[in-house]
Design a protein around this nucleic acid. Structure first.
Length: 487
RNA sequence: GGUACCGUGGCCGAGAGGCUAGGCAAGGCUCUGCAAAAGCUUCUACAGCAGUUCGAAUCUGCUCGGUACCUCCA
């Protein structure tokens, strides 16, 4: 296995070999959620994708600092200066303090991600906790001549920046077309250029979340928080910056401009973007009203859902598509994922029951190499899963005694299979804490049943099966004995 | 309107010039008191048209269809 990790870089539009800036260390920043409402499934996909990336770096032995922010201030509704920020707006609606909104949805966000078994980031900074850093950065950008103040609001001067830098490097948009875009936004702007965006916004008197600054009382613009926090925790230049694809044209474009204007450096070597989750071919989003909340998904309580799906089935469903492809949601696809995942878990359980022989009739290293190659190809999880299913086939052959494996190979194979399934893909079987007791209970019940069967007392054995089924435990007879599954 | 991207078997989805993933569904078989499950196995697809090539799902052009972004969004 000598392949190197390759990553598609939005900055260069190419797949490039990954080399960390500092050997053995990876600095990764991912744009986190704006916590003004519940996280939906589409949001979750992005964080599951980056969870895989984080896990794989850890698996490869890197020391990773994974920073993912919480946007809890200064996110404007529109790009117009009179915009209210989202928290204040939502707070007014719900008659609560803005920070109450922030707290509620931050907790919700964490709950959702923990259902999906994502690892927490190393640092999860909040925008409100870094007002000073954002003010400092804004000051520096003004000093460097790329921003100007008008009546308490500070704007980034995009046209000036674009004269000496490639402002649209990420989106590949034509700057002139952007500047002359006929689509008008209405309202008179006090800013100089139509592409200029706010770094600091003057607060109206009734505004709830506001802070003092050299330009008066106000609150930070959206884009500056990520620049300030990534610089603070990862430095002016770090390895990876990630986020959803919808952040490319505005948020990330502006982030790069701010970083260069302040630090004279393009912040990240690699820009990685995850694609959208679609429903019936359309992007899942809050504004389109086609989004599910994870709780609705788990319970099946939504008009688009035929039934509830477990968080792991959903995670597995997401991993069956590549992170840069759109993924279309459907009940059929989720049910397929559910069954496929069960097969993988069953195979993993079987591994401990396989007998070893003096030598192997199978090639174990091939599979291992293919798994690493797949991950190294820009984290190609669908291919990893395909190879794991080859492993499932192999496990079944070994179990039936059609192929033989040595103790050493079995050990290595078990380790590889389970490492990829649990550690790298982050899947976990969803047994409850009392699972062991259930196992013991079931052992007793099944023994009684098999005794009844031995007496050809099928009335009793069938009754046991039916009554277990009625409480959601399904039993299956096969050659070696009886297995059971808790629904 | 502008700019990108995409169109793969019944469904979801990898692949990116020859070696024709994988899962689910469906058919067949094995196992079995019955049932269910499980296992094995079969099914050979790349929107259409033209071109480049010894060879194209993969490259080029056009046509049709879809989506995203340009306005808050992961």
């Amino acid at each position: 296995m000598n392949t190197t990790l390759k990553i598609y870089n939005t900055l260069t539009k190419r797949t490039e070999s990954f080399e960390p800036i500092t050997k053995g260390y990876v600095g990764m920043y991912v744009c986190g959620p704006t916590v003004y409402s519940n996280a939906h499934l589409g949001n979750a996909r992005t964080y599951v994708s980056f969870d895989i990336i984080y896990r794989y770096f850890l698996h490869l032995g890197y020391k990773v600092r994974y920073v993912r922010n919480i946007t809890d201030a200064g996110h404007l509704e529109g790009d117009q200066d009179e915009g209210d920020d989202k928290f204040a707006k939502r707070a007014k609606l719900e008659q609560v303090e803005p920070m109450e909104i922030v707290q509620r949805y931050t907790v919700d966000f964490h709950e959702v991600l923990s259902h999906f078994n994502t690892l927490p980031p190393s640092i999860e900074p909040t925008a409100t906790g870094h007002i000073i850093e954002q003010i400092e950065m804004t000051k520096k950008i003004i000093e460097n001549g790329f921003a100007y103040e008008i009546d308490g609001t500070v704007y980034f001067d995009v046209e000036k920046f674009a004269k000496t830098h490639n402002y649209t490097i990420l989106s590949n948009r034509n700057l002139d077309e952007l500047l002359n875009n006929t689509r008008s936004l209405g309202g008179q702007d006090e800013k100089k250029g139509r592409l200029d965006f706010a770094l600091w916004i003057k607060a109206k008197p009734e505004h709830l979340m506001k802070w003092p600054s050299p330009w008066g009382v106000g609150f930070p613009g959206w884009h500056i928080e990520c620049s300030a926090m990534s610089t603070k925790y990862l430095g002016a230049e770090f390895d990876i910056h990630g986020g959803g694809m919808d952040l490319i044209p505005t948020h990330h474009t502006n982030e790069i401009a701010q970083n260069i204007a302040c630090n004279h450096a393009q912040p990240a070597k690699f820009w990685m973007h995850t694609n959208m989750l679609t429903v019936n071919g359309q992007k899942m989003s809050k504004s389109l009203g086609n989004s599910f909340l994870p709780n609705e998904l788990f319970s099946g309580n939504h008009e688009l859902l035929e039934k509830g799906y477990s968080p792991m089935a959903v995670r597995f469903f997401m991993l069956q598509a590549h992170y840069r492809s759109t993924l279309d949601f459907s009940n059929e696809a989720l049910q397929a994922a559910e069954k496929g995942l069960t097969r993988l878990f069953n195979a993993s359980n079987k591994l401990s029951n396989i007998n070893f022989h003096s030598s192997s009739t199978v090639q174990i290293n091939d599979l291992r190499e293919k798994l690493y190659e797949a991950m190294n190809e820009d984290f190609n999880t669908p291919m990893v899963i395909a190879h794991l299913f080859e492993g499932v086939k192999l496990i079944n052959l070994l179990e039936e005694g059609k192929e033989k494996i040595s103790a050493q190979d079995l050990d290595s194979f078990t380790k590889t299979f389970n490492t990829f399934l649990f550690e790298i893909l982050g899947l976990k079987s969803e047994q409850t804490g009392s699972a062991e007791k259930i196992d013991e209970l079931m052992e007793i019940i099944l023994q009684i049943r098999s005794e009844a069967k031995a007496r050809k007392d099928f009335t009793s054995s069938d009754e046991i099966r039916e009554r277990l089924k009625s409480i959601g435990i399904e039993i299956k007879d096969n050659k070696e004995g009886t297995t059971f599954q808790v629904a």
